[in-house]
Amino acid sequence: MDTEQNQEFVFTHRDYHSHEGVFFGHDETTGFKGIIAIHSRKRGPALGGMRMSLYPDEPAALSDVLRLSEGMTYKAAAAELKLGGGKMVVLADPKKEKTKDLLLSAGRFVQLLSGAYITAEDSGTNLEDMLVINQATEYVVGIKSGDPSRLTAYGTYLGIKACVEFKLGKKELRGLKVAIQGIGNVGSKLAEYLYQDGCQLTVTDTGEEKVKRLSENNIKFNFVKPEEIFSQTVDIVSPNARGAVLNENTVPQLKCTIVAGAANNQLAEEKIGSRLFEKDILYAPDYIINAGGLLNVYMEVENPDKYDDKVAHRRCEPIYQRLRNIFTESQKRKIPTHKIAMEMALRNLK
């Protein structure tokens, strides 16, 4: 397996923000191509999921791994975990190109970094994949705690309740209209929580099988095309798919009072957070509200032999108050919520 650092391209990349290391791996025998980005290890080893996706090109994959790894740094710091931020992307179609040999190559690539980076499941990978990867590297979590999406969804649900209480003055969600973008592992579980609480759901996704599965779970919803989700007249817009969905095109369409979802890197640019603030839309910073999955796997880092699902759920509960504190500080200082969240994360990185 070859590893290299493309210094000239990486260091001038728009999404490179003092990352500690960016590593490129390639195994010709299995077809594996992957990138690991380590943004920071100030608080501990860099942990982040292994995302497998058919990217349009290699620069797009690099941009994704740089942005995601940086987000993981702030997520861990804001949650006061002894972890740094990292991420791995595998350039492959998870539906057609995922093989045992390719996964083993990915595991060997992780092992080369000797624990500087710890991997876990992410979009395009699952628990079964992690079990295979674990055959090639010890630096993988999520084996005992299982699918982290259920905790990501739970934490996001608690975060939405914090948003609603702060912005709308309501302790209950019943009757609120929510537009959910993306009903994959996290989005579908979040939809269940919201539906059980009496919310009226409008959803979208590019995968027909996901829509069918949500319907089979006896959840009533209105389906719209992906390009229509941000223009819905609702109380809450909840992004739960890919990043950069809040941008110059979508923000002017918003007809909501709250944006709160589990997607990573929702703001295409930093200034978009200020746009939301100017429009009087309460934005729940993504790496604060979606920390449940990280809190879940962190229990394995602390003590691999003592994972407890009930404890994992309890560890998500501070997300509610953390967001309330951010909202209160934002209101008091008249500063956008994403800037307050960043201040919090950076304080914990000193």
Rank of each mutant, 00 (worst) to 15 (best):
G84D: 06
G84Y: 02
G86Q: 04
V89Y: 03
V90H: 06
L91I: 14
A92L: 05
A92T: 06
A92E: 12
P94V: 04
E97P: 11
K98N: 15
K100W: 06
K100A: 13
D101G: 13
L104Q: 13
F109N: 08
Q111G: 01
L113Y: 04
S114D: 14
G115L: 07
Y117F: 12
I118K: 01
T119S: 13
T119G: 15
D122K: 09
S123N: 12
G124L: 01
G124Y: 03
T125R: 02
E128R: 03
D129A: 13
I133P: 06
A136T: 03
V141G: 09
I143P: 12
K144C: 10
S145G: 11
S149Q: 14
R150D: 09
G155F: 01
T156A: 06
Y157I: 04
K161D: 10
K161C: 10
A162K: 06
C163T: 07
F166E: 11
F166S: 11
F166V: 06
L168H: 07
G169E: 12
E172G: 14
R174T: 13
R174H: 14
R174L: 07
V178G: 08
A179Y: 03
G182D: 05
I183N: 01
S188N: 09
L190Y: 03
E192N: 14
Y193G: 05
L194P: 04
L194N: 12
Q196M: 11
Q200I: 15
Q200G: 06
L201Y: 11
T202P: 01
T202K: 05
V203L: 00
T204H: 00
E208Q: 08
V211R: 01
V211N: 02
L214A: 05
